[in-house]
Nucleic acid binder design. Structure first.
Lengths: 211, 211
DNA sequence: TACTATACTGACCGACCGGTCGGTCAGTTG
DNA sequence: CAACTGACCGACCGGTCGGTCAGTATAGTA
């Protein structure tokens, strides 16, 4: 048969279940979502969810691993290009932010997971992902520093912290901040990202050279 | 009687219940904590928890309001002092970070609450608090800008974003980042805070004046 | 045709949930 | 002394939880 459905890896129900679980877990957290609700969202019986994933924990870990895989794949596409340091950092930062915004459900779940929740269902997996992304950014910054594009006394890890934290902040605090009249970049991620890079490059001090 | 117990506002059980609820909610989230567990943690019967707080939702909102009150009180102490802009910003940022670290349970709860969880048990309260703190910081930065201590083309709200996000990032991602060998400020909040201010003031660009 | 493996379901289980109930007890008031 | 109050508890309620199981539907194989 030459239908458009070329391959269906395991079963037609697995993917809807994973999508429903990712949506509900990210919206309400692990404990607040029941297997019955996931089955309803995926138009499948609760028993079938258990049939495919065994336990609630296994389903959750599968969801997290799927998010991590998608996230790293998206990030790999950003490693190409040989332009100068400033524009490359801008591309990386913009891509990182848009990556977060694109699948906000997954990002929400990973942030939940990386927080101090001691239960740690998938905590170490999230930690590994964030660590990898962070190291990659630090390496990029260090390269720019050795090439002379970045002042020598700046700490690459500190710069990476400022960049990543700015993006995470945009994602999960901007809905709260947006209504303040002092903020005019709430609805434009690209503008925000560019502003972050610009502010970070030029610094905020009034005197041009103090030493 | 002139005991040391001068006044006990309502009951001897209310405070332990609130403390237990704040601890458990921040560690595991709203849905993952049962009223029975809160009672056990507070060494009180579950029925007594309901006696004092009515419902689980009311207890949760009480906990959040208590955190918000404590947070704003701690922040009020930072508004004094008339030193120059740089050191004042340093003081504010350092105080903000230490404030978060001091009652990390409350901060954890507020961050959970301000995230995209659509349920919104105490979301608007958390949003109000974050908005107030943010506005206060923007005002401080604007004052420094008008006084000439800050370059005129910088956006105060953007600078505030960078500062607040850096602190939040330290709080909830540093346990994950700390193990990377590129990071050497993980266990010293003061050093981190000073580094953030320093990097932000001087900028990261190599050329001293590009215009 | 019969056999087998897998997807799938409704019915069901014990445990626990948020919340309520009747009732005990110490302290206060008159 | 009785009357009353609020803190407090064990027992219980209807309902939902994660998880199991017997049985059906379906497709491939021989």
């Amino acid at each position: 048969m030459d239908n458009s459905t070329i391959q269906q890896p395991v079963s037609s129900a697995v993917e809807p279940i994973l999508a429903a679980a990712e949506k509900l877990f990210s919206e309400h957290g692990f404990a607040a979502v029941s297997m019955r609700e996931i089955g309803i969202e995926a138009r499948v019986s609760k028993a079938n969810v258990f049939h495919h994933f065994g336990t609630k924990d296994k389903l959750y870990k599968t969801v997290i691993q799927r998010i991590i895989r998608a996230s790293t794949e998206l990030l790999d596409e950003l490693d190409n290009g040989e332009d100068n340091f400033h524009s490359r950092l801008l591309r990386f930062n913009n891509g990182h932010l848009n990556n977060i915004l694109k699948n906000s459900q997954g990002a929400c779940l990973l942030i939940q997971e990386s927080m101090a929740l001691r239960s740690g269902h998938g905590q170490q997996m999230a930690a590994e992902l964030l660590g990898n992304q962070f190291n990659r950014l630090v390496k990029l910054i260090s390269m720019g520093q050795k090439a002379g594009d970045l002042r020598a006394d700046a700490d690459p890890a500190m710069v990476a912290c400022l960049l990543v934290s700015a993006n995470l902040f945009f994602f999960d605090a901007m809905p709260v901040i947006a209504h303040l009249d002092s903020v005019n970049f709430a609805d434009d991620p690209d503008k925000y990202s560019a502003g972050v890079i610009d502010t970070l490059f030029k610094g905020i001090s009034a005197q041009e050279s103090e030493q």
